[in-house]
C-alpha cells in the first residue's frame, strides 16, 4: 500500500526551494556588483570631494570595509529579514520598495489583462473560420504584423504624443494624483504600451493551437448541429485555449511585474524597472538585492502557476 505523504511535505519542499533560490539570487547580485567594481561613493563624481571627505562618506555608509566584511554584514541583515539601507534613496530598502512594487504589479497585471483582451480580438480576426468579416480579417492581419515588429517604447512615445499631449484623454505622467499610489486613468497608457506588443506575441502562440481545432470531432459535430463559427470561437475554442494562455501568462507576468524600464521612463511611472536601473548604475547593493529578490519571488510564483497548468494542457491533448 502506497504511503500517503504528510500534507506539509510538498509545502515544505516548495518553500525550501524558494528560500534556496532567494539565497542564490542574493549572492549572485552581490557577486555581480562586486565584480563590476566601485561603490556609490566612488561613483559620485564630484571632483571637489577631497580624499578625506570621500573616505569619511564611505566610512559612514560602511563602504570602506572589505568585500568579505560587507558580505557578512549583508547576509546577517538578510537573515534578520532586513534588506539594508539604500545609499541612493537615503532610506531603508524596505521603505523604498513597497510603492514601486505595487505600481509594477498593477502595471503588469493590467498590461496582461489588456493583452489578453486585445489578443482575443486579434485572434478572432486572424482565424479564417471564426466568423469575422473579411475586411476585419485583413485589418487584423495587418495590425498583428505591425504590433509584432513595433517595440513597446515606440508605442509608448506615440501614445504619449497623440493620446496624452494632443488629445488629452489621459494623464501625461505619473502613476496617480496627489496622495495615491496608482490610479486607473494613469494606468491606461502605460498598460497599453506594454499590452499591444505582448498581445501580438500571444496571438502568435495561440493561433496555431486554435487552427488544430478545425479537424477535431467536437468542432465538426458542433458545426453540423448549426452552431455558428463566431459562437464556436468565443464560447468553445477560446475556452480550450485558456490553459495554454495561462501557462504563457505565468511565464511572462513575472517579467512584466518586475518592471518595464523604458515604458516607466517615458511615462514617469516609478516602478521597479527604474529602481533596478538606479541600483545597478549607482552600485546600490542593498536596493539591487531587494529588487532582485522581488523579481525572483514573482518568477517563482509565476513558474509554479505555469507548471500547474501543465496537467490541464495534457488533459486537453496539447502536450504529452
Amino acid at each position: 500500500m502506497k504511503r500517503r505523504l504528510p500534507p506539509w511535505r510538498p509545502m515544505f519542499f516548495f518553500f525550501g526551494r524558494v528560500l534556496l533560490l532567494f539565497w542564490m539570487v542574493a549572492n549572485l547580485a552581490f557577486v555581480c556588483l562586486h565584480v563590476a567594481g566601485n561603490n556609490p561613493v566612488d561613483l559620485y563624481l564630484d571632483a571637489r570631494l577631497t580624499p578625506e571627505q570621500r573616505e569619511r562618506i564611505k566610512a559612514y555608509y560602511g563602504y570602506d570595509q572589505s568585500a568579505a566584511v560587507r558580505y557578512q554584514r549583508f547576509m546577517g541583515t538578510l537573515v534578520r529579514g532586513e534588506l539594508g539601507y539604500s545609499f541612493t534613496r537615503k532610506k531603508a530598502v524596505a521603505d523604498v520598495l513597497p510603492k514601486p512594487m505595487l505600481r509594477s504589479l498593477a502595471l503588469g497585471v493590467c498590461a496582461c489583462a489588456g493583452a489578453v483582451f486585445i489578443a482575443c480580438l486579434l485572434l478572432w480576426t486572424r482565424q479564417p473560420r471564426a466568423g469575422a468579416p473579411r475586411w476585419l480579417q485583413r485589418l487584423g492581419y495587418a495590425l498583428h504584423q505591425i504590433l509584432l515588429v513595433t517595440p513597446s517604447f515606440l508605442i509608448a512615445v506615440l501614445l504619449l504624443q497623440w493620446v496624452a499631449v494632443r488629445w488629452r484623454w489621459f494623464p501625461l505622467y505619473g502613476s496617480a494624483g496627489a496622495g495615491g499610489v496608482v490610479s486607473p486613468s494613469h494606468l491606461v497608457l502605460p498598460s497599453l504600451a506594454v499590452a499591444l506588443p505582448f498581445s501580438a506575441y500571444l496571438v502568435t502562440y495561440l493561433q496555431e493551437h486554435l487552427a488544430n481545432h478545425y479537424q477535431q470531432s467536437w468542432y465538426l459535430s458542433a458545426r453540423g448541429r448549426g452552431i455558428s463559427e463566431a459562437r464556436l470561437f468565443w464560447n468553445h475554442q477560446l475556452r480550450m485555449a485558456v490553459p495554454l494562455l495561462l501557462q504563457i501568462i505565468g511565464l511572462y507576468l513575472p517579467a512584466l511585474c518586475s518592471g518595464v524600464l523604458i515604458v516607466e521612463n517615458i511615462f514617469g511611472w516609478s516602478g521597479m524597472g527604474l529602481i533596478m536601473i538606479d541600483a545597478v548604475t549607482g552600485r546600490d547593493y542593498p536596493l539591487l538585492v531587494g529588487a532582485a529578490l522581488w523579481s525572483a519571488w514573482l518568477t517563482t510564483l509565476g513558474y509554479q502557476f505555469a507548471d500547474s497548468q501543465r496537467r490541464r494542457l495534457v488533459y486537453t491533448g496539447v502536450t504529452a
Partner: peptide, 10 residues
C-alpha cells in the same frame, strides 16, 4: 564622522 562633502577647507 559626518559624510558632508562641502566646505573645501575643513
Amino acid at each position: 564622522d559626518l559624510p558632508w562633502f562641502g566646505f573645501t577647507q575643513k
